[in-house]
Amino acid sequence: MISKEVVEKVAKLSRLNLDEAEIALYAEQLSQILDTMEGLQQIDTDGVVPLAHVLPIENVFREDDVGQCFRQEEVLANAPEQSDGMFQVPKIV
């Protein structure tokens, strides 16, 4: 069972605000999902190398060549708030 504290910690890490009802709901949901996870323990994976990429390819590179950048006004086109060619946020102490 996932505790409310865990949900609160994870929500903070993920920058989400939850009210009491949501915390309870997600605690229950997360517990349910984690329960199905327990099933995985039944598969013996001793000595199995974790598979992060399904493709058997390696060493995908680009050469160190400079390409076209986007223009400042394009980069800022979707910005909620901007100033002097930069994205604007509240003061960071």
Partner: peptide, 30 residues
């Protein structure tokens, strides 16, 4: 989406990584 975010974040936490995420990658290979 929020539940998926919370769950995903939890699976990657320091306490859970090897028990959950790493395990899932091993099961993936199996």
């Amino acid at each position: 989406l929020k539940s998926a975010i919370l769950f995903g974040s939890e699976t990657l936490s320091t306490e859970n990584y090897s028990k959950v995420y790493d395990k899932a990658m091993r099961v993936r290979r199996v």
